[in-house]
Amino acid sequence: TLITAPVVAGEYGLGREALPEEVAAWDVDVAPDGTGLPAGSGSVEYGEEVFAEACAYCHGDFAEGVDNWPKLAGGADTLDHEDPLKTVGSYWPYLSTTWDYVNRSMPFGYAQSLEPDDVYAIVAYILYSNDMVDDDFVLSNENFLEVEMPNAGGFIIDDRETAEAHFWNDSPCMENCKDSVEITMRAMVLDVTPDTE
């Protein structure tokens, strides 16, 4: 489909104009360049307090995770190993994502309840837990973009069409495609499937 500009805007005249307060209430996502960040700030120290109260129950006192709940810290240099540990510190390319997700989606079960300063503080604490800032660090909308994310350069855009060009194949093999076939692994050995009877 071509990307063409529409012929007439408001053709149907349906809906009503959104009010500024309404847009402000819902348009709270934060982009990598900081678009969407409200003014505010929070320290690691205060963040530790809030985190202990609202987050540690699931994510651990040091953001190291509890049971099966997500770990938010650790995992540096594990991405090219077996079972990489992907956390804000080891994996996330943009700090905006942490601010945005904590602000909109956490705490789990009581989302969208945090004040901006709390979110700055919590994010500062998560950075601290990941050894990315010192204990006297204060995060704010001013210094937000200065934080360097360790894995910022770790992403490439979908390259399947080139890296996997050989999966496009006009005449896949139909006969005698290999010499022998052996079973190399069995699911029953693991036995992790729920009982369905």
Binding site: E21, E22, A25, W26, F108, Y110, A111, Q112, S113
Partner: peptide
């Protein structure tokens, strides 16, 4: 829109 609804906060 302007107030956080229950379904936007609780599970």
């Amino acid at each position: 829109i302007t107030e956080v609804q229950d379904w936007a906060s609780y599970t």
